[in-house]
């Protein structure tokens, strides 16, 4: 089994095919979308492939250390930041092919007009612990 992170972007991913902001959908289309996402996660729980899923607020703050005895420096949010993560899902699957298949299904979630969003999701493998039995 290998874990993959499916990243959804507010900004920074290539534009989706059906690229309409959510508040311009109809309320029914929003409900259908949310239902699709919930069903997807529920199905992956049943197949034993779901690990975690979380959504993030759009605005964040940059923070850095500013030296001994000084409070950290905060900055942002930066409107020009290219990449903005909207949320993630972590899956635990047998193969890379399965991870791609699932990311494709998630990207097919319905959007404006009830048509799939075709949204670009970023698929990132987790770095694993070294195997216990090393074969040479």
């Amino acid at each position: 089994m290998a874990k993959y992170l499916l990243l959804k972007h507010y900004r920074g991913a290539p534009a989706a095919v059906n690229d309409v902001p959510m508040d311009r959908w109809t309320p029914e289309e929003i409900s259908a979308h949310i239902q699709y996402m919930q069903d997807f996660a529920a199905r992956l729980e049943k197949t034993g492939e779901f690990v975690d899923g979380q959504a993030l607020a759009p605005e964040g703050t940059f923070v850095r250390y500013d030296g001994e005895g000084r409070p950290p420096v905060t900055d942002g949010p930066f409107a020009e930041t290219k990449d903005l993560i909207a949320g993630w899902m972590i899956i635990d699957v047998d193969t890379y092919e399965r991870a791609v298949e699932l990311a494709g299904e998630l990207s097919a979630a319905p959007g404006a007009g009830g048509r799939p969003i075709h949204e670009w999701l970023e698929l990132r493998p987790f770095l694993t612990e070294p195997p216990a039995a090393i074969t040479e």
């Binding site: 959510m22 508040d23 311009r24 959908w25 109809t26 309320p27 289309e29 929003i30 409900s31």
Partner: peptide
């Protein structure tokens, strides 16, 4: 978001 969508409709 639904409220915004409802008003846009």
């Amino acid at each position: 978001t639904r409220q915004a969508a409802r008003l846009h409709v």
